[in-house]
């Protein structure tokens, strides 16, 4: 599933909170840290590369 900017931000917040609580094995912390780094890069890239995209409602494929 493609992650949205908001989902990525929320997950990043979650990881920071977990790491700040500490009390987990080092391997797990490192895994979370790596995920967090990737998420922050993903978010930053989204923000830096953002270019407004406009489509007309008539070009949108309906969900139904």
């Amino acid at each position: 599933m493609k992650m949205t900017y908001e989902q990525a931000t929320k997950r990043l917040e979650e990881i920071v909170t977990k790491l700040e609580e500490g009390s987990m094995p080092l391997e797990e912390s490192m895994k979370l840290y790596e995920e967090g780094v990737k998420l922050s890069e993903f978010c930053m890239q989204k923000l830096n590369d953002a270019k407004q995209k406009i489509i007309d409602i008539n070009e949108v494929k309906n969900n139904d």
């Binding site: 931000t9 967090g36 930053m44």
Partner: peptide
């Protein structure tokens, strides 16, 4: 996002 990244770094450092 930068602030979150900083928090992430210091959190792992503290760990």
């Amino acid at each position: 996002i930068s602030a979150l990244k900083n928090a992430l770094d210091s959190a792992i450092e503290n760990n």
